[in-house]
Simulated scan of single mutants.
Amino acid sequence: MQNCMRTVLKAGYGEYEEKRSRFLAFVFPVSSEEDAAGILNELKKKYWDAKHHCYAYRINSETAVQRFSDDGEPSGTAGVPILEAIRKKELHNVLVVVVRYFGGILLGASGLVRAYGKAASIALEDAGAITRKMCYQALLRIGYHLHGRIQNIAASNNFAITSTKYTDVVEIELLVEPEKKDFFIKTITEASGGQAEINFHGETYANFDDNGTCIL
């Protein structure tokens, strides 16, 4: 997986109706084509009576992959607008499936493009978007008199605190974005007068919202 990737926060759902045709849209976070195929098969079983099960996905793992299917709709009227809804939000590792129940009235190519794209967009909004980023895991060991000051610095600079232990000193675990590492060291060192013990002991993925705030 790449060090920084925009993806969905959770599974999502949305519905759209056009001239009595119902479009049920489902969003799933996925990490492989096998994941996507398994979910698609389950939806086809559950909604076996629907006329079309159209989909698109973008996956970044070892290599970047994107695929789509019109599933019997006129070429380019279903899978492509679903994929465009994903691209518009710059999302990866996501599958969108739109199940259509035909309402008896033909929508035409432009109507289908609009309906599939709209249904996909509604479900993607429901799923929410995050940026998944590799971060350093930092451990600070500080005196109790510095605790409040370090908490304020962490909050104002979005250094996410994941745990705090109180022993003979205060031990604070934080997540630090790679581009902020040098700034983090400098800021903590200056704020503590060189008294803070700073150790980086690993890396992990963390989720960030569109405001750059870490979601714990």
Rank of each mutant, 00 (worst) to 15 (best):
C4I: 14
Y13F: 15
F28C: 00
S31N: 11
E34I: 08
D35N: 07
A36P: 03
A36R: 01
A37D: 11
K44G: 06
Y47F: 15
W48Y: 15
H52Q: 09
A56K: 00
A56F: 01
E62A: 09
F68T: 03
D70L: 11
P74D: 02
G79F: 04
I82H: 04
L83I: 05
I86S: 11
K89W: 03
E90T: 07
E90G: 03
V94S: 02
V94W: 03
L95G: 04
V96H: 01
V98P: 09
V98E: 07
Y101W: 02
G103C: 04
L112D: 08
I122D: 01
I122Y: 04
I122M: 02
L124Q: 05
D126V: 05
G128F: 07
K133T: 12
C135I: 02
Y136Q: 03
A138T: 03
A138L: 08
A138N: 04
R141T: 13
G143Y: 10
G143T: 10
I150P: 07
Q151E: 15
A155M: 10
S156D: 14
Y166N: 09
Y166T: 08
V170C: 13
I172L: 12
V176M: 07
V176E: 09
K181F: 06
D182W: 00
D182Y: 03
K186M: 11
T187P: 00
T187R: 05
S192Q: 05
S192D: 07
E197R: 12
N199I: 14
N199L: 14
Y205A: 03
A206W: 04
D209H: 01
L216H: 00
L216V: 05
